[in-house]
Protein backbone atom coordinates (compact mmCIF):
# COMPACT_ATOMS: atom_id res chain seq x y z
CA UNK A 1 0.00 0.00 0.00
CA UNK A 2 2.81 2.38 0.78
CA UNK A 3 5.10 1.21 -2.02
CA UNK A 4 2.69 2.09 -4.83
CA UNK A 5 2.67 5.88 -4.34
CA UNK A 6 6.47 5.85 -4.18
CA UNK A 7 6.65 3.95 -7.47
CA UNK A 8 4.20 6.43 -9.00
CA UNK A 9 6.36 9.35 -7.84
CA UNK A 10 9.48 7.73 -9.30
CA UNK A 11 7.63 7.08 -12.56
CA UNK A 12 6.61 10.71 -12.85
CA UNK A 13 10.20 11.69 -12.02
CA UNK A 14 11.44 9.60 -14.98
CA UNK A 15 8.82 11.14 -17.28
CA UNK A 16 9.74 14.67 -16.24
CA UNK A 17 13.40 13.98 -16.89
CA UNK A 18 12.61 12.52 -20.31
CA UNK A 19 10.59 15.60 -21.28
CA UNK A 20 13.35 17.85 -19.97
CA UNK A 21 15.98 16.00 -22.00
CA UNK A 22 14.03 16.62 -25.22
CA UNK A 23 13.71 20.34 -24.41
CA UNK A 24 17.35 20.62 -23.49
CA UNK A 25 18.46 18.87 -26.64
CA UNK A 26 16.23 20.95 -28.91
CA UNK A 27 17.35 24.20 -27.30
CA UNK A 28 20.38 23.97 -29.55
CA UNK A 29 18.10 24.62 -32.53
CA UNK A 30 16.22 27.52 -30.92
CA UNK A 31 19.36 29.53 -30.26
CA UNK A 32 20.61 31.92 -32.90
CA UNK A 33 23.95 30.85 -34.31
CA UNK A 34 25.14 27.55 -35.64
CA UNK A 35 27.48 25.14 -33.91
CA UNK A 36 29.41 24.56 -37.10
CA UNK A 37 30.25 28.21 -37.61
CA UNK A 38 31.38 28.38 -33.99
CA UNK A 39 33.59 25.34 -34.39
CA UNK A 40 35.27 26.96 -37.35
CA UNK A 41 35.93 30.12 -35.36
CA UNK A 42 34.70 32.65 -37.88
CA UNK A 43 37.14 31.51 -40.53
CA UNK A 44 35.51 31.39 -43.93
CA UNK A 45 35.79 27.70 -44.49
CA UNK A 46 35.67 25.63 -47.58
CA UNK A 47 32.60 23.49 -48.19
CA UNK A 48 34.70 20.38 -47.50
CA UNK A 49 35.80 21.68 -44.12
CA UNK A 50 32.18 22.39 -43.14
CA UNK A 51 31.16 18.91 -44.24
CA UNK A 52 34.01 17.32 -42.31
CA UNK A 53 33.18 19.13 -39.07
CA UNK A 54 29.48 18.43 -39.51
CA UNK A 55 30.17 14.73 -39.92
CA UNK A 56 32.64 14.65 -37.03
CA UNK A 57 30.01 15.94 -34.57
CA UNK A 58 27.18 13.93 -36.14
CA UNK A 59 25.31 17.07 -37.21
CA UNK A 60 24.46 15.65 -40.64
CA UNK A 61 22.03 13.07 -39.28
CA UNK A 62 18.26 13.74 -38.89
CA UNK A 63 17.39 15.48 -35.62
CA UNK A 64 15.51 12.57 -33.96
CA UNK A 65 18.48 10.31 -34.66
CA UNK A 66 20.85 12.88 -33.23
CA UNK A 67 18.67 13.01 -30.12
CA UNK A 68 18.64 9.23 -29.69
CA UNK A 69 22.42 9.08 -30.11
CA UNK A 70 22.88 11.92 -27.66
CA UNK A 71 20.50 10.37 -25.11
CA UNK A 72 22.18 6.95 -25.39
CA UNK A 73 25.55 8.58 -24.78
CA UNK A 74 24.21 10.67 -21.90
CA UNK A 75 22.81 7.54 -20.25
CA UNK A 76 26.31 6.08 -20.47
CA UNK A 77 27.73 9.19 -18.84
CA UNK A 78 29.10 10.57 -22.09
CA UNK A 79 27.98 14.14 -22.73
CA UNK A 80 30.09 14.60 -25.82
CA UNK A 81 33.06 16.89 -26.29
CA UNK A 82 33.24 20.56 -25.50
CA UNK A 83 33.65 22.78 -28.54
CA UNK A 84 35.77 25.36 -26.78
CA UNK A 85 37.96 23.20 -24.54
CA UNK A 86 38.25 20.20 -26.87
CA UNK A 87 37.86 17.75 -24.00
CA UNK A 88 35.12 15.47 -22.67
CA UNK A 89 32.26 17.41 -21.10
CA UNK A 90 32.07 14.93 -18.23
CA UNK A 91 35.74 15.47 -17.35
CA UNK A 92 35.24 19.19 -17.61
CA UNK A 93 32.23 19.17 -15.28
CA UNK A 94 33.93 16.82 -12.85
CA UNK A 95 36.88 19.20 -12.56
CA UNK A 96 34.60 22.17 -11.96
CA UNK A 97 32.10 20.43 -9.63
CA UNK A 98 33.94 20.64 -6.26
CA UNK A 99 33.87 24.46 -6.19
CA UNK A 100 30.14 24.59 -6.89
CA UNK A 101 29.27 21.75 -4.52
CA UNK A 102 31.27 23.47 -1.78
CA UNK A 103 29.60 26.80 -2.47
CA UNK A 104 26.05 25.45 -2.56
CA UNK A 105 26.61 23.20 0.47
CA UNK A 106 28.02 26.04 2.56
CA UNK A 107 25.25 28.39 1.41
CA UNK A 108 22.67 25.68 2.20
CA UNK A 109 24.09 25.32 5.69
CA UNK A 110 23.95 29.09 6.24
CA UNK A 111 20.39 29.22 4.87
CA UNK A 112 19.26 26.35 7.09
CA UNK A 113 20.79 27.69 10.29
CA UNK A 114 20.27 31.44 9.89
CA UNK A 115 16.90 31.15 8.13
CA UNK A 116 15.38 28.79 10.70
CA UNK A 117 16.88 30.66 13.64
CA UNK A 118 15.64 34.04 12.40
CA UNK A 119 12.18 32.65 11.57
CA UNK A 120 11.79 30.92 14.93
CA UNK A 121 13.02 33.96 16.85
CA UNK A 122 10.62 36.21 14.98
CA UNK A 123 7.64 33.88 15.51
CA UNK A 124 8.26 33.49 19.23
CA UNK A 125 8.56 37.26 19.67
CA UNK A 126 5.68 38.20 17.40
CA UNK A 127 5.06 41.94 17.35
CA UNK A 128 8.05 42.75 19.53
CA UNK A 129 11.29 44.48 18.56
CA UNK A 130 13.13 41.28 17.57
CA UNK A 131 10.30 40.32 15.23
CA UNK A 132 10.16 43.76 13.64
CA UNK A 133 13.92 43.84 13.14
CA UNK A 134 13.97 40.42 11.52
CA UNK A 135 11.06 41.30 9.24
CA UNK A 136 12.76 44.52 8.18
CA UNK A 137 16.11 42.83 7.60
CA UNK A 138 14.53 40.00 5.62
CA UNK A 139 12.64 42.43 3.41
CA UNK A 140 15.91 44.22 2.69
CA UNK A 141 17.88 41.04 2.05
CA UNK A 142 15.20 39.57 -0.22
CA UNK A 143 15.26 42.72 -2.32
CA UNK A 144 19.02 42.68 -2.98
CA UNK A 145 20.08 40.67 -6.06
CA UNK A 146 22.99 38.35 -5.34
CA UNK A 147 25.45 40.16 -7.66
CA UNK A 148 24.85 43.43 -5.81
CA UNK A 149 25.23 41.59 -2.51
CA UNK A 150 28.48 40.11 -3.81
CA UNK A 151 29.90 43.53 -4.68
CA UNK A 152 28.92 44.97 -1.30
CA UNK A 153 30.50 42.03 0.53
CA UNK A 154 33.70 42.32 -1.50
CA UNK A 155 33.91 46.08 -0.97
CA UNK A 156 33.43 45.76 2.76
CA UNK A 157 34.98 42.51 3.95
CA UNK A 158 37.63 42.02 1.28
CA UNK A 159 38.72 45.50 0.25
CA UNK A 160 38.12 47.63 3.36
CA UNK A 161 38.63 45.13 6.18
CA UNK A 162 40.71 42.63 4.28
CA UNK A 163 39.32 39.71 6.31
CA UNK A 164 38.45 37.48 3.42
CA UNK A 165 39.86 36.95 -0.07
CA UNK A 166 37.73 38.35 -2.87
CA UNK A 167 38.83 36.09 -5.67
CA UNK A 168 39.69 32.49 -6.54
CA UNK A 169 39.11 29.06 -5.07
CA UNK A 170 42.10 28.56 -2.82
CA UNK A 171 44.18 25.42 -2.31
CA UNK A 172 43.54 22.68 0.22
CA UNK A 173 40.34 22.15 2.19
CA UNK A 174 40.61 24.91 4.80
CA UNK A 175 41.84 27.50 2.36
CA UNK A 176 39.06 26.58 -0.06
CA UNK A 177 36.52 26.92 2.74
CA UNK A 178 38.03 30.29 3.65
CA UNK A 179 37.68 31.40 0.05
CA UNK A 180 34.05 30.26 -0.01
CA UNK A 181 32.82 32.28 3.00
CA UNK A 182 32.01 35.51 1.14
CA UNK A 183 30.54 33.81 -1.96
CA UNK A 184 28.37 31.58 0.22
CA UNK A 185 27.12 34.59 2.18
CA UNK A 186 26.32 36.47 -1.01
CA UNK A 187 24.49 33.43 -2.38
CA UNK A 188 22.63 32.68 0.85
CA UNK A 189 21.41 36.20 1.70
CA UNK A 190 18.20 36.21 -0.35
CA UNK A 191 17.35 32.64 0.58
CA UNK A 192 17.93 33.21 4.29
CA UNK A 193 15.32 35.95 4.08
CA UNK A 194 12.83 33.71 2.25
CA UNK A 195 13.30 30.76 4.60
CA UNK A 196 13.03 33.05 7.64
CA UNK A 197 9.73 34.44 6.37
CA UNK A 198 8.25 31.04 5.58
CA UNK A 199 9.38 29.67 8.94
CA UNK A 200 7.88 32.63 10.78
CA UNK A 201 4.53 32.38 8.99
CA UNK A 202 4.34 28.63 9.35
CA UNK A 203 5.25 28.76 13.05
CA UNK A 204 2.71 31.49 13.75
CA UNK A 205 0.00 29.47 12.06
CA UNK A 206 0.80 26.48 14.24
CA UNK A 207 1.08 28.62 17.39
CA UNK A 208 -2.54 29.63 16.95
CA UNK A 209 -3.75 26.04 16.64
CA UNK A 210 -5.95 24.58 19.32
CA UNK A 211 -3.76 21.52 19.82
CA UNK A 212 -0.99 23.82 21.02
CA UNK A 213 -3.32 25.29 23.62
CA UNK A 214 -4.32 21.77 24.63
CA UNK A 215 -0.67 20.85 25.10
CA UNK A 216 -0.14 23.94 27.27
CA UNK A 217 -3.27 23.13 29.27
CA UNK A 218 -1.85 19.70 30.01
CA UNK A 219 1.08 21.23 31.82
CA UNK A 220 3.68 20.49 29.16
CA UNK A 221 6.64 22.89 29.35
CA UNK A 222 7.06 25.67 26.80
CA UNK A 223 10.22 24.22 25.28
CA UNK A 224 8.57 20.87 24.64
CA UNK A 225 5.46 22.53 23.22
CA UNK A 226 7.48 24.66 20.82
CA UNK A 227 9.66 21.79 19.63
CA UNK A 228 7.16 18.92 19.53
CA UNK A 229 4.00 20.71 18.49
CA UNK A 230 4.88 23.99 16.82
CA UNK A 231 8.19 23.56 15.01
CA UNK A 232 7.54 19.91 14.17
CA UNK A 233 4.20 20.79 12.51
CA UNK A 234 5.64 23.85 10.79
CA UNK A 235 8.23 21.76 8.92
CA UNK A 236 5.91 20.85 6.01
CA UNK A 237 5.70 24.28 4.32
CA UNK A 238 9.36 25.00 5.12
CA UNK A 239 10.44 21.83 3.38
CA UNK A 240 8.21 22.45 0.35
CA UNK A 241 9.57 25.95 -0.11
CA UNK A 242 13.13 24.71 0.34
CA UNK A 243 12.62 22.23 -2.50
CA UNK A 244 11.54 25.01 -4.85
CA UNK A 245 14.42 27.24 -3.70
CA UNK A 246 16.98 24.69 -4.95
CA UNK A 247 16.48 25.86 -8.54
CA UNK A 248 17.03 29.49 -7.59
CA UNK A 249 20.09 28.53 -5.59
CA UNK A 250 21.69 26.74 -8.53
CA UNK A 251 20.96 29.57 -10.93
CA UNK A 252 22.16 32.24 -8.50
CA UNK A 253 25.34 30.25 -7.88
CA UNK A 254 26.46 30.87 -11.47
CA UNK A 255 26.20 34.63 -10.95
CA UNK A 256 28.04 34.46 -7.63
CA UNK A 257 30.78 32.29 -9.13
CA UNK A 258 31.31 34.86 -11.86
CA UNK A 259 31.47 37.69 -9.31
CA UNK A 260 34.06 35.94 -7.15
CA UNK A 261 36.03 34.34 -9.95
CA UNK A 262 35.35 30.81 -8.76
CA UNK A 263 35.85 28.23 -11.47
CA UNK A 264 32.73 26.23 -10.76
CA UNK A 265 29.96 24.80 -12.88
CA UNK A 266 28.00 28.04 -12.80
CA UNK A 267 30.73 30.15 -14.32
CA UNK A 268 31.36 27.36 -16.85
CA UNK A 269 27.68 27.58 -17.84
CA UNK A 270 27.87 31.33 -18.33
CA UNK A 271 31.00 31.07 -20.48
CA UNK A 272 29.59 28.19 -22.51
CA UNK A 273 26.36 30.00 -23.27
CA UNK A 274 28.41 32.98 -24.30
CA UNK A 275 30.47 30.91 -26.76
CA UNK A 276 27.66 28.63 -28.00
CA UNK A 277 29.39 25.56 -26.54
CA UNK A 278 26.27 23.44 -26.90
CA UNK A 279 27.39 20.10 -25.43
CA UNK A 280 28.47 21.81 -22.20
CA UNK A 281 25.29 23.92 -21.97
CA UNK A 282 23.13 20.87 -22.55
CA UNK A 283 24.96 18.83 -19.95
CA UNK A 284 24.83 21.52 -17.26
CA UNK A 285 21.19 22.44 -17.87
CA UNK A 286 20.27 18.77 -17.77
CA UNK A 287 22.22 18.38 -14.55
CA UNK A 288 20.37 21.32 -12.96
CA UNK A 289 17.01 19.88 -14.04
CA UNK A 290 17.94 16.47 -12.62
CA UNK A 291 18.99 17.96 -9.29
CA UNK A 292 15.91 20.16 -9.05
CA UNK A 293 13.42 17.45 -9.95
CA UNK A 294 15.13 14.90 -7.70
CA UNK A 295 15.14 17.29 -4.74
CA UNK A 296 11.44 17.95 -5.15
CA UNK A 297 10.66 14.27 -5.51
CA UNK A 298 12.53 13.68 -2.27
CA UNK A 299 10.49 16.45 -0.63
CA UNK A 300 7.29 14.84 -1.94
CA UNK A 301 8.34 11.45 -0.66
CA UNK A 302 9.14 12.96 2.74
CA UNK A 303 5.67 14.53 3.03
CA UNK A 304 4.02 11.45 4.62
CA UNK A 305 6.82 11.31 7.18
CA UNK A 306 6.25 14.96 8.06
CA UNK A 307 2.46 14.71 8.03
CA UNK A 308 0.85 11.26 8.17
CA UNK A 309 -2.42 12.70 6.88
CA UNK A 310 -0.99 13.18 3.41
CA UNK A 311 -1.07 9.41 2.98
CA UNK A 312 -4.71 9.29 4.07
CA UNK A 313 -6.04 10.02 0.60
CA UNK A 314 -4.67 6.72 -0.64
CA UNK A 315 -4.67 4.53 2.43
CA UNK A 316 -7.01 5.48 5.26
CA UNK A 317 -10.76 4.99 5.11
Amino acid sequence: MTILPILKKLGSLALTLFAASILVFCSMYFVPGNPVSFLLRGRSPSAEAVAAVTAQYGLDKPVPEQYVDWLANVLHGDFGRSFQYREDVSTLIASRAPATIGLVALAGLIIGILGLAAGITAALNQGRAADQAILLASTGLAAIPSFVGAIVLIAFFAVQLGWFPSFGSGNGFLDALYHLVLPALALAATFVALVARVTRTSMLEQLGREHVEVAVSRGIGRGHVIRRHVLRNALGPILTVSGVLVAGLLVASSIVEQSFGLSGIGSLLVQSVDRLDFPVVQAIVLLIVVIFVTMNTVVDLLAPVIDPRSMAGAAAR
Binding site: E210, V214, H229, N233, P308
Partner: peptide, 11 residues
Protein backbone atom coordinates in the same frame (compact mmCIF):
# COMPACT_ATOMS: atom_id res chain seq x y z
CA UNK B 1 -11.84 21.04 24.62
CA UNK B 2 -14.65 21.39 22.13
CA UNK B 3 -13.26 19.87 18.99
CA UNK B 4 -11.07 16.81 19.56
CA UNK B 5 -9.91 16.85 15.96
CA UNK B 6 -8.31 20.27 16.20
CA UNK B 7 -7.29 19.66 19.80
CA UNK B 8 -4.84 16.92 18.96
CA UNK B 9 -1.61 17.31 17.06
CA UNK B 10 -2.36 15.63 13.70
CA UNK B 11 1.23 14.51 13.12
Amino acid sequence: FQDPRSGMNPV
